[in-house]
Nucleic acid binder design. Structure first.
Lengths: 254, 254
DNA sequence: ACACTTATCGTCAAGTTGACAATAAAGAAA
DNA sequence: TTTCTTTATTGTCAACTTGACGATAAGTGT
């Protein structure tokens, strides 16, 4: 804390040239595949942590806003042309004590998306790939900087959002079956849910889902009805996400 | 987006000198008084928006972390010696297009606290004071920068946190009656709650409240039992806030 | 003692949840 | 084709929670 006798005027420091910090955005891109939650990681090509795994991200450019920077980094580092899902800001970290090069503030973002193809290995650019979140959380995979903490916070945010928002559908495509939506919940929460009770809650919540009238086909078992998000709960880029699930669909505790 | 032919290496910009931004922290300090939700605002002494109302806040110093900076600004601008409640990070805004002086990134924070005394007017320093949140939200009070938006986001965060976390108690002192806690909920949500049903939920939720054994006195009406947060839901600085209210105590919708 | 105010306990119908039976509709196997 | 297997969807039922509100308890002010 600044010595009081130097800054008698509480706003005095504002007269000083303010310190400036490098600002980065990092993106925790989550998807569901193979029944588990996965996170997008890139191979770092430069120091520090060269050769290690890290979240996609990079410096914010002058005149840029945070969301735009996050989307740009995703495009540059993972080769995603158009935002494939729901992007929101997560939390900021720093600036002290998280980068060996010095103070760096990072604004972490969260992307919930269907499994999408990423920049393959073999190019001279960075390799991007999906990795099981469990491996990150239990320390099997080592991440650069404080990225493991960031992933952990992102997963907790995702878990809690599924309880009351329609964001689970962000992991599915435009149309999906109740069972597909259920596997999303199961993967994110890491629990099993009763298909019948889940079906009841999903279809019984007003303003959540809308029947498309079409059916899934080709899978094993009886064909399932295809749904999409109802207009009330549709996810618009930058728009607010409504708390449609009321009462919420709580994850099993204990 | 950077021209691809210039940055064939997606991480190339990391080799460039990264842009640096001034970083500020702003604090939305909320309290409950007179049955309504109030926010702490200061009178700006310097341009821009000199003489206008704004959130307490200021530049982050080198080597500082965000929470620390927020606490320091609160101390400097409002004269609070020790953090009187629960402080958490809210969201980051910027850096583009929110300060006439140029790009400034701000990390907004949220303080939930009992009514505490602030730096009075009359000193040569800034005046700090409590103002009704309703006046800010409905545009009666004009705030500097994008601070109205920030207050709006902060209030929404607070409203939602009361539903599932024990943070309502952060507005009360160490010990409080059920009725005091209820008025917090009523002020934050802007609704009336049935005292009997609220009492049932508050005292009936395991791990939420703990009876102190003592009674309130001096008020009108029958004395009320004094409670404190149960150990499971106690709020530790920097620690996680547990979702104790399960199922949640939902605010009335519609 | 009496009125008034607030706290706390009960009651009851309506809605929600968790556990699980039963049926429906497809493809695969016999 | 008939049967088996798999998944989808509809019900059922008891336990629990919620919202509305009656009744009683225990203080203060007159």
């Amino acid at each position: 804390m600044a010595p009081t006798h130097v800054h008698a005027d509480p706003a005095a420091h504002a007269h000083l040239r303010p310190a400036r910090f490098p600002v980065t955005v990092d993106v925790v891109a989550l998807t569901v595949g193979g029944g588990e939650l996965r996170v997008l990681l890139i191979n770092r090509l430069i120091e520090p942590f060269k050769g290690g795994l890290a979240l996609p991200g990079g410096f914010v450019l002058p005149g840029e806003d945070l969301m735009g920077a996050a989307a740009r980094e995703l495009a540059e580092e993972a080769g995603v042309a158009r935002l494939p899902g729901h992007l929101e800001q997560l939390q900021s970290y720093g600036p002290a004590g998280r980068d060996p090069r010095g103070d760096v503030l990072t604004v972490a973002h969260l992307l919930l998306a269907p499994n999408f193809p990423v920049l393959a290995a073999g190019s001279d650019a960075a390799h991007a790939g999906w990795h099981p979140v469990s491996g990150v959380l239990d320390g099997e995979l080592d991440l650069a900087f404080d990225h493991r903490q960031i992933v952990s916070d992102a997963v907790e945010r995702a878990r809690s959002k599924l309880e009351y928002s329609p964001l689970g559908a962000a992991f599915c495509g435009e149309e999906f079956t109740i069972a597909q939506l259920r596997t999303v919940y199961e993967a994110v929460w890491g629990t099993r849910l009763d298909p019948r009770n889940f079906h009841r809650k999903a279809t019984g919540t007003p303003g959540f889902l809308e029947d498309t009238g079409t059916m899934s086909a080709g899978e094993a078992g009886r064909p399932a009805a295809l749904f999409r998000l109802a207009p009330e709960s549709r996810i618009v880029a930058g728009g607010p996400v409504r708390a449609v699930l009321n009462p919420p669909l709580m994850r099993p505790r204990g």
